[in-house]
Write a protein that binds this DNA or RNA. Structure first.
Lengths: 125, 125
DNA sequence: TCAACACATGAACAGACATTCATGTGTTAT
DNA sequence: ATAACACATGAATGTCTGTTCATGTGTTGA
């Protein structure tokens, strides 16, 4: 047996369906970690947030210009930026009464591009 | 001017805030494409769906075993699998009264691992 | 000082979505 | 045939969340 190698909970040997040739549960991603990942992906699961990211990846922009470029309410943009700021995905710089935002985490933009390519080669729905 | 190079809508020369040194809007991701990406990311934005993916990446499993391994309702698992199936992320194989699912799109699992690493090196919240 | 501006923030509303429950379909075994 | 099983599906429910509206804070210019 290689239960420990497979990181299997051995409190109870619950039986799997006999149709599968397996004798124990495969290791599942712990829920807390799964939840953190889900939060991260969910963060990118909004079209307007992605468009904001796409803009801020190229250049620095203030809230008002973002709103105009995206045809969004100033307040809506500000709320979204607050979210992105909380996750440390953007940094901001105050200049007079303007606040300029810029993409901080390039890792996110890599993910962005990865999925962009994925969509080109895969037919969704 | 390099407006066409930058793919800028030139119907109206709306003025940006003078604080930014820019004279025109940067190109934004088209909304429809952004929406497709958002749908894709949103799909991964659920802890239980991620856990299902993590299990099906390692091995083939039937619905009932998934439900037990994840401590979920059979119906809930089935609903989630329907979603994953619609997006062609999993494939299924019928064997008697069991239906075995398996991860089809390894690209998704790559993304999964990428974010997993990302979370280890970044403090979220 | 006062008005206009840029942005932030809180509450309220509406839409999306995951789960549950009840039910339906198809398969196996007696 | 019929009961038990494995899974799928539709409706209903509760929760989460993005936008809007109203308001607050801080800055600039007259």
């Amino acid at each position: 047996m290689t239960e420990t190698d497979l990181n299997i909970l051995d409190d109870e040997e619950t039986q799997l369906c006999e149709a599968s040739g397996k004798t124990a549960y495969p290791p599942a991603l712990e829920f807390v970690k799964a939840q953190r990942m889900a939060d991260f992906f969910g963060l990118l699961g909004d079209a307007n947030r992605l468009r904001i990211i796409s803009l801020l990846a190229d250049t620095e922009l203030c809230v008002g210009d973002l709103a105009i470029a995206l045809d969004m309410n100033d307040s809506a943009v500000s709320h979204q930026l607050k979210t992105l700021r909380a996750l440390r995905l953007v940094k901001h710089r105050k200049q007079g009464r303007h606040v300029f935002y810029q993409l901080l985490d390039r890792h996110v933009f890599d993910l962005y591009n990865t999925v962009l390519e994925h969509l080109d080669e895969t037919a969704i729905d």
